[in-house]
Design a protein around this nucleic acid. Sequence first.
DNA 1: CGGCGCGTAGTACCTCGGTACTACGCGCCT
DNA 2: AGGCGCGTAGTACCGAGGTACTACGCGCCG
Lengths: 222, 222
Amino acid sequence: MTTVLVVDDQPLQRYGFHLLLDSVPETDVVGEAAHGAEAVRKTAELRPDVVLMDVRMPGMDGIEATRRIVAAGGRSRVLVLTTFDLDEYVHAALRAGASGFLLKDARPEELLAGIRAVASGDAVIAPALTRRLLQEYARYVPAHRADSAEDPGLGSLTDREREILVAVGKGWTNGEIAARFVLSESTVKTHVGRVLAKIGARDRIQAVIFAYDHGLARPNAD
Amino acid sequence: MTTVLVVDDQPLQRYGFHLLLDSVPETDVVGEAAHGAEAVRKTAELRPDVVLMDVRMPGMDGIEATRRIVAAGGRSRVLVLTTFDLDEYVHAALRAGASGFLLKDARPEELLAGIRAVASGDAVIAPALTRRLLQEYARYVPAHRADSAEDPGLGSLTDREREILVAVGKGWTNGEIAARFVLSESTVKTHVGRVLAKIGARDRIQAVIFAYDHGLARPNAD
DNA sequence: CGGCGCGTAGTACCTCGGTACTACGCGCCT
DNA sequence: AGGCGCGTAGTACCGAGGTACTACGCGCCG
């Protein structure tokens, strides 16, 4: 049995979800909320398996509510629903920690399948959104490992040189690298110089770019 | 009516898909292939709406076949199926241009829904994989737009300054930027200096990192 | 043993980048 | 009319970065 909290500012919409979810035995609507603040409060109180969250709501919106629910650390998972497939919503929701994102025009069985998946710890994305998400994903997440044959130098770097490159990718100066690796600055310069030659970069800036493009540098830097 | 090409090296597996897809009126299996090379050939010949592609196959595997089919530019979409949810497969398949990735233990209706979605130009990912994909996505694709309140400067940049930052993110020197923007190097320096001050970077290297972290710089650089 | 790759270290030199500060024209708002 | 933001441009200065070249100890391999 999956317990669900329905969050939507439209009473009629809530009623519809209620009807749908009660029509099958596996889901049980344990509560409703009309805005973000109420959603956060009731989630803490009722501890539902799944929070069915509308995005557009007066006051605290669904994104912010999602963020707080996820931050609270309970076991409730958030499935975001919206009429609009605006990219910003999707991004914001996923970054807020939502486990899923579906459109309200989804067929009932899709919604139920989504709730089921989210409840079991998986994630769902509406097919119509998945395409765009994947395009972006493929753009942003490049050569995960040294896959695509062409590999101008990465493989020829020694372990030490790769370490140095990562450090350069963090934006550290030669002096900082020397300090953290307990080396002389001269040595760092020698390493950096060799790295630049091997990867075909003319300066450390292009080395940073190289590092990002090849997955050596990460946004969670420093 | 959706036409499907079934690709799998196991005859029994192909038979199973054939049975399933023929049991519903909306799909029509127009051909089968036992390995990658045959899949590429038959896709070109039969022009199916959807290619149901197994990953593990002797000879050319499903990933390479997917890459070639997508590169060929036809309207056939590839839905990759596998028994193993290995990350490398998922990554490779998506980068190869697959429109979907499902596990073979999917329930029949899920598979059919997937085929339907892919045929209509959408994309599908098995829920079990979506979670991991999203985690990574959230890691790699940072603040897409100035969403999360904290925004040390990006919003305060003028249009010109943002242009400059993008150029810096491409690894261009001040001289190159001056040349491409038809400016004096002094002006570029002034702009760069202001950008650094606004985003809180101490040098252009950290500006490059900032640009990447905020989605201003792209792997498809230069 | 001798050579080679690698990591370490140094010197010398010059360029590029960044800072500080000034300055001016343009457009917009008050 | 005056002020302000923005884009433009300049000078002067200095430190970090990069190049070129040399050097040495260590471990591995033929």
